[in-house]
Design a protein around this nucleic acid. Structure first.
Length: 358
DNA sequence: CGGCAACTAAACATTA
DNA sequence: CTAATGTTTAGTTGCC
């Protein structure tokens, strides 16, 4: 490794048009049905990440309130230290990043979505799967980062990275092989990733293992989150007629996810911002107070997030919380997380506080 | 319009 | 030898 380690500049991420929204499409990975309750039907759910603050085995430094510092959309300055940027282990909890992208393209008739600057790719999946395989908004660096972070050992061979990407984003399954070149190119070129020689005692295939350089991890995470925010706040799914159409047909619809961050407090009303333009604007919800108390015993402690599923079925919208708790949210017209959401938040606190059965 | 970052393609070398 | 992997260069695109 002859890469110098000058700090990489953060990639300029285009700012969302509505900078005050804290919506976030949350990444989720393919095989996580564990948190999805069995009723009502909800097949494609979109999990919601609730970042909160715990130290975790994968987080060398205890993260500070995660989004509080990163809510550039809210105009908050970025934290100078990296403590709040180091935890990405929610990736292990999340299965199904996929809905995030395809759902952006679920509407071929929605000009509002087209306006998001997303490539339109409605190619059906290779196995008749989701017919909405849009190119993920993530850069290759972010994809590689997520892949590596999602691996148990925090290191992957190139092939493993390929597989993660393909499994997570079926768009790449159908894509031509050029993206693999881009992945390799990125691995080589980016200072954020370093190559580790395989243990020769273990015959494990060709090539080296790749890992994330710790010093670049915060930057990568920051970029990832920015991508996350920007693509979520650009999208107004609930105002999307197609979504409502789908609701009329009673089919579960992947909905916007809500990233709840910094103020989920039972004592403090969550500063939910009803917004007629956006789906849900949960400015902030604090979890960290409880989280700090219970960080060690909470199995979610190393996730950095609490997973919620937010879906729509018939006329109702549900906020599904871990532990089979779910709330039906009012209408598709204006989703306003008020008392119920706060109750949900309270439930989250309970969960974060050790209510999780384990 | 220039700078920058990201993407893409390609050529070539190395390695299992 | 082949295919996968790794490195490097160059061109393109989109955004600021």
């Amino acid at each position: 490794m002859d890469k110098d380690h000058a700090l990489p500049p953060l990639s300029p991420i285009q700012s969302p048009g509505t900078p005050c929204k804290n919506l976030a499409l949350s990444p989720s990975l393919p095989h996580s049905s564990a948190t999805v309750p069995s009723s009502p039907p909800l097949s494609p759910t979109t999990p919601v990440c609730l970042p909160y603050t715990h130290s975790s085995p994968s987080c060398p430094t205890p993260p500070q309130p995660f989004l509080a510092h990163t809510s550039h959309c809210l105009g908050s300055p970025l934290s100078s230290d990296q403590d709040d940027l180091t935890c990405l282990s929610w990736l292990h909890q999340r299965r199904n990043l996929l809905p995030m992208q395809p759902l952006l393209k679920t509407s071929s008739s929605s000009s509002s979505l087209l306006a998001c600057g997303e490539p339109q790719d409605l190619t059906p999946g290779p196995q008749g799967g989701p017919a909405t395989l849009g190119k993920p908004p993530y850069s290759f660096s972010s994809l590689i980062f997520m892949a590596i972070e999602d691996s148990p050992e925090k290191q992957l061979p190139v092939k493993g990275i390929y597989e993660w990407i393909v499994n997570t984003f079926p768009y790449y399954r159908a894509a031509s092989g050029g993206w693999r070149n881009s992945v390799r190119h990125n691995l080589s070129l980016s200072k954020s990733f370093c190559r580790i020689s395989r243990d020769k005692n273990k015959s494990g295939g060709k090539g080296s293992l790749w890992c994330v350089c710790p010093e670049y991890r915060p930057a990568l995470l920051e970029v990832l989150k920015k991508t996350h925010y920007c693509h979520s706040s650009n999208i107004n799914l609930l105002n999307n007629p197609v979504l409502q159409e789908a609701a009329d047909f009673g089919s579960p619809v992947i909905c916007e996810t809500v990233e709840i961050s910094d103020h989920l407090s039972s004592s403090e009303p969550c500063s939910l911002t009803p917004d007629h333009e956006e789906l849900v604007a949960i400015e902030s919800v604090t979890l960290h107070e409880e989280a700090e108390k219970e960080g060690e015993k909470d199995p979610l402690a190393d996730s950095g997030y609490i997973e919620l599923h937010y879906y729509q079925y018939n006329q109702y919208q549900y906020l599904v919380l871990p532990g089979d708790t779910e709330l039906d949210l009012e209408t598709v017209e204006i989703l306003q997380l008020d008392a119920e959401a706060q109750e949900a938040a309270g439930s989250l606190l309970d969960l974060a506080g050790g209510g999780h059965s384990g």
